[in-house]
Simulated assay, not measured.
Amino acid sequence: MISPKRERDFFHVIHKVPSGDGPYVRAKHAQLVQKDPESAIVWFWRAINAGDRVESALKDMAVVMKQLDRTEEAIEAVKSFRGLCPKHAQESLDNVLIDLYKKCGKVDEQIVLLKHKLKLIYLGEVFNGKPTKTARSHGKKFQVSIKQETSRILGNLGWAYMQKSNYMAAEVVYSKAQMIDPDANKALNLCHCLIKLARYQESHLVLQDVLQYNLPGSDDPKSRNRAEELSSELESMQPGPLPSNLPGLNWEDDFVEALERALNELAPARSRRLPIFEEISQFRDQLAC
């Protein structure tokens, strides 16, 4: 016969609910067992106010609010209460905010926060000073390097610029991301930007890496379909001059210029500059054109 304690332990393992009887545990029970998101939010609020696992409660509540299309409310909650969370939690809270901004179409806010995350990488203030961090995806743990994280953030920034039809900025950012940690998805986005900039020969070369399976993710069905679509689009294009009415050509407040200024200002004062930023800084002359 299974003891009541053992039975409770099995329950927590099966339903992935933490043990205990505090407001955070009750929130997770409402979320995962009762499937009652509204009650879960109420209990998450109580957990935050009671100081019960505030970081987890805030992030989990934001996820539930997003599922209920209460994204704006989730953004305000994270911004208002992140100060109650420890310093090491701020990076993951930034990721939550970026996801929420993306959900409700706040592109400018995404760009500001992504630039901030890149600056933190440059300053050596991510991963708690370690070269890698442990991440989760679909229940599996894996290691992420600073190099991979930088490329991922640059890819997200490139996508945000694309949403604003700022293809010049997006092209530069995607090019840097590909130099650091290339993959098929970023290559396809880069190809799209180059097409928009009427740089058809360059876009064709980028596309070939995907079509010839030279990049990670090239065999993904979605990537194959998109590559074929871009290939057909390129076949219909004729070389011509760069369009004169492209939006976003004012680089005054653009990420690349801001990052270059940061490189110039911060490098003499410190010795921990990461190699990836040394690589980026080699292209100042190109970016100034």
Rank of each mutant, 00 (worst) to 15 (best):
V96E: 12
Q90M: 11
L157A: 01
Y101K: 02
C85R: 13
K87L: 15
M61D: 02
W159D: 08
V54R: 00
Q143R: 13
F127C: 03
L58C: 07
K102F: 10
V173F: 14
E91K: 08
R136T: 11
A50P: 02
S80R: 15
Y167M: 04
S165K: 12
W43Y: 12
L123G: 06
T150G: 09
G158H: 04
E109N: 08
N95V: 09
K130Q: 10
S39V: 00
Q34V: 05
L100C: 05
K141Q: 14
Y122V: 00
S80W: 04
L113Q: 03
Y161D: 07
V54M: 05
S39G: 10
N166D: 15
F81V: 09
E171R: 14
I146D: 05
V54A: 07
V172H: 08
I48E: 03
L84I: 00
K119Y: 15
H88F: 14
R136H: 14
A77M: 07
G51Q: 01
S80E: 14
L157I: 07
S145I: 14
L118W: 03
G83N: 11
K130Y: 02
G83I: 00
W43Q: 12
G129V: 03
I98F: 06
L123K: 09
E125Q: 14
G139N: 12
E76T: 12
Q90G: 07
P37I: 04
A135T: 02
E171I: 01
E72L: 04
K147R: 15
F81E: 09
E91Y: 15
